[in-house]
Design a protein around this nucleic acid. Structure first.
Length: 807
RNA sequence: GCGGAUGUGGUGGAAUGGCAGACACGCUGGUCUUAGGAACCAGUCCGAGAGGGUGUGGGUUCGACUCCCACCAUCCGCACCA
């Protein structure tokens, strides 16, 4: 027997798989199409300069296991790979080192590809895509134009999140704790004209669609929370001084009788309108200026301490009782949610209560059950309406229905659903992104670039740095910017903003089905066969970003009749992070980064993959342990040496046979549930049993190799070949099946408890009935001794498991 | 504050109503060795033992890591969303 040499084995099989295109997904022949399809997807990597980190292989290996298992089960499997290559780090690197981002990208991709190939993933490399390839982003631009045609892409001057460091506008999703998700610099609000995508139009569809897909529950919950649907009413408050209605949004219309003042956000246009009417405009204007200066971070920091100014000299009329209430402005009311105005009910809302206490405003109880002078009473389950005219005596729930009917009837309010979700800021003032295919014409406005002129390619520029005003470096390329209007033919300018990183990844799973199509973004044939993705694994950090954005694009395409399924992903799972050996998040600055290359060099890809799957529960964060990885290498060495155990015997023992079948069942089921750690533990146990026997039949070895193959594909193929398990290679074999009958052993050990404490163990024949089991337990000498003369009150028998005697 | 999770040996974890600690890592002792950071063998929850033991306190049950109630701790996400 040769020594186990992972390096040569792995190189050998990777070449065989490649040369024979073993993992190519095809629908060329009727036989291909007759097969059941399985589309497995991982989030395509961003090819950063640092190369692959150990997080990538965790997701990749998991889906590789599922894909390999599916192939052995006879499915036609699509398991593609590509590059999400537009983005800031590459651009920043390009700026610093004065290299074209395309060259940096090419270099990084080559490095990533090399690293991934060494790990032996069964990707279909013929379908490799790259979001920065004009042949790819042509279709990204094409989809943008579809959105534009339907009015879902629009330009709007609005306050956006501006990163002071990256000098770039950010989506809400990219702002974390008031700082830039990427660089950590402060984010401030600035007014800018931006391209926006109307994801809000799909808010309800994005919620509803979750009912029809198999996503892990926490993903669904997080998406629902992020979209933030709430039901309530809009109510009009008349303001006599300007003869206008101010409309507020509330989820508690039942508390309308308790509204003692009104608050508008500092940005509300009504402030301008009352400029000459109110007596303290200077004070209000100063407050407004102060609020505008505050960054989001400062605004959230001051959560507890409420500020505000009354608009003195005017009041609003509560439609339900004609009461005149003061109007205030405060930054605890957000311009971007609801109507930007609220009715304040301090008795039943914590924020209003804090504000009212600070400024000495009235607190009127309208729901009985609390002590509203000491704290807001916000329980909506138990309260009964009081001080509320025709609502008195009703429950909160009943009052809600009745008041809305009343408001609608009187024409002073409507039922209203609101969402926290905002439209998606889609412009970036950066170079390394897809150009937005729009021409700005003084006469015609925003004019889409005609389809036959796509792609609008990125021109070369001298410098990738934004201008001082924060515009895209593309403005410095006059020969590119200056063009003619496709509509009227007069001189016009190209849009210089580019798309955000999220654009290319919002539809890449569609392109994988038909990556080389020059005429369409996907053919009908490929779409009908491959879509939707059957199983998508990825990180939780993408739940409210990529995962939501791509569902939005997909639903839009579905609405346009451009794709045949309403949801892109049938199933979504998520892996836990791999931490450094010290239990902290892996990062360069902490110096705890593990490079997969080093591990593969030392113990090989199979051991590396095995350890990544064995280290712990797949969905939990787990610290890396290089020692643990070496333990997996030891296991594979033991597997390697099993070739010496092979005998001509067909069955070694009944017990081993039962072990093999039990393991087939366990491993088959555990892989499906992504319980890779216990599947591998079962395989290790089986190896321990085989070692105890010291011999092994070919049939048992065959089953074992197939079970281990998805995790450790190289060593299993090699052993299959050298032990001559079959004339065809393992990758052409069939997944093993288990026989329930073979899993049953002749005898079984059961536990005898006395009053719930284990006192003895007895071996009885399998299948013994309750009475016989009980008799066997009572006949045991140790049991007899303990029971003695005590009276037996009760005996519980669980056949095949235990007997519990209560005395 | 709201939402979600997690809590078991020295470590990663297993067991989802039926023998707690499977499977590994580490450690201890041994075999072989010039050597061992290799390989193999034995041991390894605590306790001398009876017995005790899954964050804490209660409950349900013949029986609870598992189910119920209350609490504590840690992690993650969202956060003035009316």
């Amino acid at each position: 027997m040769k020594e186990y040499n992972p390096k040569s084995i792995e190189a050998k099989w990777q070449k065989i798989w490649d040369d024979n295109k073993v993992f190519a997904a095809r629908i060329d022949t009727p036989e291909d199409k007759a097969k059941k399809k399985f589309y497995a997807l991982i989030e395509f990597p961003y090819p950063s300069g640092q190369g692959l980190h150990v997080g990538h292989p965790r997701s990749n290996t998991a889906m590789d296991i599922i894909s390999r298992k599916r192939r052995l089960e006879g499915y036609n499997v699509l398991f593609p790979i590509g590059w999400d290559a537009f983005g800031l780090p590459t651009e920043n690197y390009a700026i610093k080192n004065k290299v074209h981002p395309a060259i940096v990208t090419e270099k990084n991709i080559a490095h990533f590809k090399d690293q991934l190939k060494r790990l032996g993933f069964s990707f279909d490399w013929d379908r490799e895509i790259d979001t920065t390839d004009p042949d790819y982003y042509k279709w990204t631009q094409w989809i943008f134009l579809k959105l534009f045609e339907q009015g879902l892409a629009y330009k709007s001057k609005m306050p956006i999140n501006w990163c002071t460091e990256c000098k770039v506008g950010l989506a809400n999703e990219e702002v974390v704790n008031g700082v830039c998700e990427r660089c950590g610099a402060q984010v401030i609000r600035v007014e800018r004209s931006q391209w926006m995508l109307k994801i809000t139009e799909y808010a309800q569809k994005l919620i509803d669609g979750l009912d029809d897909v198999d996503f892990i529950e926490k993903v669904k919950i997080q998406q629902r929370n992020w979209i933030g649907r709430s039901e309530g009413a809009e109510v009009d408050f008349y303001v006599p001084a300007i003869d206008e209605k101010l409309t507020v949004y509330t989820t508690r219309p039942d508390t309308l009788f308790g509204a003692t003042y009104m608050v508008v956000s500092p940005e509300d246009p009504v402030i301008d309108k009352v400029k000459d009417i109110i007596s303290n405009y200077d004070e209000v204007a100063a407050y407004k200026a102060e609020a505008a200066k505050k960054s989001d971070f400062e605004r959230t920091e001051l959560v507890k301490d409420k500020t505000g100014v009354q608009l003195k000299g005017i009041y609003a009329v509560n439609p339900v009782n004609g009461k005149e209430i003061p109007i205030w402005t405060s930054d605890y009311v957000l311009v971007s949610y609801g109507t930007g105005k609220i009715m304040a009910v301090p008795a039943h809302d914590d924020r209003d209560w804090a504000f009212a206490k600070k400024f000495g405003l009235d607190i009127i109880e309208v729901v009985a059950g609390g002590d509203v002078q000491n704290a807001a009473f916000t329980d909506i389950e138990s309260g009964v309406m009081v001080n509320s005219g025709f609502l008195d005596g009703l429950s909160v729930k009943e009052a809600k229905v009745k008041i809305i009917d009343w408001l609608v009837d009187k024409g002073v309010g409507i039922r209203k659903v609101n969402y926290k979700l905002r439209d998606w800021v889609f412009s970036r003032q950066r170079y390394w992104g897809e150009p937005i295919p729009i021409v700005i014409c003084d006469h015609c406005g925003y004019v889409p670039v005609p389809e036959d002129q796509l792609p609008v390619k990125l021109p070369d520029v001298e410098s990738y740095v934004q201008t001082d005003t924060g515009e895209s470096p593309l403005v410095n390329v006059p020969e590119w910017v200056n063009t003619t209007c496709p509509k009227c033919g007069r001189p016009a300018k190209r849009e210089t903003d580019t798309m955000p990183q999220w654009a290319g990844s919002s539809w890449y799973f569609i392109r994988y089905c038909d990556p080389h199509n020059k005429d369409e973004y996907i053919s009908k044939e490929a779409m009908d066969y491959w879509m939707p993705v059957d199983w998508y694994n990825g990180g939780m950090e993408h739940t409210t970003l990529h995962l939501l954005y791509s569902r939005f694009w997909h639903k839009f395409l579905y609405n346009q009749g451009l794709i045949s399924c309403p949801e892109p992903y049938q199933k979504r799972t998520s892996h836990g992070m791999i931490l450094g050996e010290n239990g902290e998040k892996m990062s360069k600055s902490r110096g705890n980064v593990i490079n997969p290359d080093d591990i593969v060099d030392e113990i090989g890809a199979d051991s590396f993959r095995l350890y990544e799957m064995f280290m712990g529960a797949f969905d939990q964060a787990i610290p890396w342990s290089t020692q643990g990885a070496k333990g997996c290498y030891r296991f594979l060495e033991r597997v390697w040496k099993m070739q010496d155990f092979l005998t001509e015997e067909e069955e070694i023992s009944e017990a081993l046979k039962a072990d093999v079948h039990t393991t087939i069942k366990k491993v088959t089921e555990d892989y499906e549930k992504m319980k890779f750690n216990t599947a591998i533990a079962a395989l290790m146990s089986l190896v321990n049993s085989i070692y105890a026997c010291g011999k092994l039949s070919k049939g048992d070895f065959k089953a074992f190799l197939l079970l281990l193959n998805p995790v450790a594909p190289h060593i299993t193929e090699e052993l299959w070949e050298i032990c001559n398990i079959d004339s065809a290679p393992l990758y052409k074999a069939k997944w093993p099946e288990y026989d329930e009958k073979a899993m049953v052993k002749a005898n079984v050990e059961i536990v005898v408890q006395i009053c719930g404490k284990v006192k003895a163990k007895i071996v009885i024949p399998t299948g013994l009935d309750k009475d016989a089991t009980q008799a066997a337990a009572l006949a045991d000498s140790k049991v007899k001794e303990i029971v003695g003369n005590s009276q037996i009150k009760k005996v519980i028998v669980v056949p095949g498991r235990l007997v519990n005697i209560v005395i």
